[in-house]
Each structure stands twice: as C-alpha cells, then as structure tokens.
C-alpha cells in the first residue's frame, strides 16, 4: 500500500488551454468577453444591442454556447455578424477547449471584439476560466432581487454586472435598492449597468465600459 501525494489542480487542462486562448487573443489585440446569465435573462438581446451600438466602429464576432440548437447563432448571423455555434451536448457550461476550437475557425487577427455567450446557467460557468479578458453577468428584473443572495459566486466572479429588462420593473416586485446593496456587499468594485436591451434604455453606460476596454487592447494600426 502507498500514499501518493499529487497536489494537482483539477482544472489544470482547462486552465492551460484558457491561457493559450488568452495568448492568442492578446497577440491579435482582440478583447474577449464572457457573458453569463440564466436562460431568458436576455443574453442574446444584450448582444444584439451591443452589436448595433458597435458595428460601425468595431469588428465583432460571437461565440454562442448552447446545450443544443443553433437558434442564437442564426439570429446573430442574420444581422451580418460572424457567429460560431458551440453545442455542449448536455454540458451546463463552456470549457476552454470549446473556445479554442471556436477561435480556430475565426479570423482572430481581423477582429476587435469577441463576445462569448455562455450556456444559460448561474452556477457552473463561474468555475471555468475560458481565457476571456472579462466575465460579465446579466440578471433580469423578472428573476428577482434576491438572486445575489442565492447565487453569490457568479456575482463575485464578474467584472461587471448588467441588470436587464429594467423597463419591466413596474410589473415585478423587484426591490432595486435591495439588489444593489446585495451586489455591493458581494462585489464592491463591479459596476452595475441598468439597461433594457430591447429598447436601448441605459445601454450607453455598458457600451462605454466595454469600448474603453476594447480600445485599450486594440493594436494600433500600422
């Protein structure tokens, strides 16, 4: 009988491939953002609003993660934007090897911004680094103001938080102050952008935050 000391990180392979994704996008000067939310929070409509605001000035591609179907990537493609669909085949989150394959089919050098739409889930995507420059989560008003208390991890890991569907606040019992106070406790440094993606309300503050980061990473034209 023997006791073998291993002391090995379990996500070593994921983290190694994520670091390769990061290097690839760093070398190309492209900013990669991982958008996370529960199903129906408005990831796709937030992406569409972002595309509309930025498409004249930036070269954008979208990596769509879903358990099944290509509904979302077809929506993005119908707007004339490159989209790569990843079907996880049941898995509840994206992992870095899936992103590596998606990056492999994109002309990364010819892009400024890659938006990853993670699988709809407030839990599992939290634990997987994909090589992104920022993790951003979306909560929508109908989901309720108590979600930061129930799913603290995703609020803590996010670099910015979008509160979507604020135009529906009058019909839902959503306590904005309680929500902001819970978020502040969990992640005091993350900005919260209050938007309605489908009407464009409040979207500018999110766009300003994002473009500042895309510009910072963009390679100067030679």
């Amino acid at each position: 009988m023997a006791h073998l000391d291993l002391e090995k990180p379990l996500l070593e392979r994921n983290d190694r491939l994520a670091a390769e994704n990061k290097k690839l996008t760093d070398d190309a000067g492209v900013f990669m953002v991982d958008l996370m939310a529960s199903p129906g929070a408005g990831k796709t409509s937030t992406i569409l609003a972002t595309i509309e605001a930025l498409r004249e000035s930036y070269r954008i591609a979208v990596i769509e993660g879903d358990i099944a179907s290509d509904v979302d990537s077809q929506t993005i493609k119908s707007k004339g934007i490159t989209a790569v669909q990843i079907n996880t085949g049941g898995a509840c989150h994206l992992e870095s090897d899936m992103i590596a394959r998606a990056l492999g089919v994109l002309d990364v050098e010819a892009l400024d911004l890659i938006i990853i739409e993670n699988v709809g889930n407030l839990v599992c995507p939290t634990d997987f680094y994909l090589g992104e420059d920022a993790k951003v989560m979306i909560l929508s008003v109908p989901e309720g103001d108590d979600k930061p208390l129930k799913y603290p991890g995703i609020f803590q890991i996010s670099d910015a938080i979008i509160l979507n569907k604020v135009d529906t606040t009058p019909v839902f019992d959503f306590d904005r102050e309680a929500f902001l106070s819970s978020v502040q406790g969990l992640n005091p440094t993350a900005p919260v952008f209050e938007i309605a993606a489908t009407t464009g309300q409040g979207v500018e503050s999110w766009i300003d935050w994002l473009t500042a980061r895309v510009d910072k990473k963009k390679k100067p034209l030679r």
């Binding site: 023997a2 000391d5 291993l6 002391e7 990180p9 379990l10």
Partner: peptide, 20 residues
C-alpha cells in the same frame, strides 16, 4: 476597504491517492 485579494477559497485540487 473593498480593494482586496482572495488568497484562498477557489481551490479545486486532488491532494493524494492511496493505492495498493
């Protein structure tokens, strides 16, 4: 202060195995 760094708490590691 809210400017802090997490030192410990996100580990996921296999420490050891016993075999025979």
């Amino acid at each position: 202060s809210v400017i802090t760094k997490l030192l410990q708490g996100r580990e996921m590691q296999i420490d050891a195995v016993e075999v025979e």
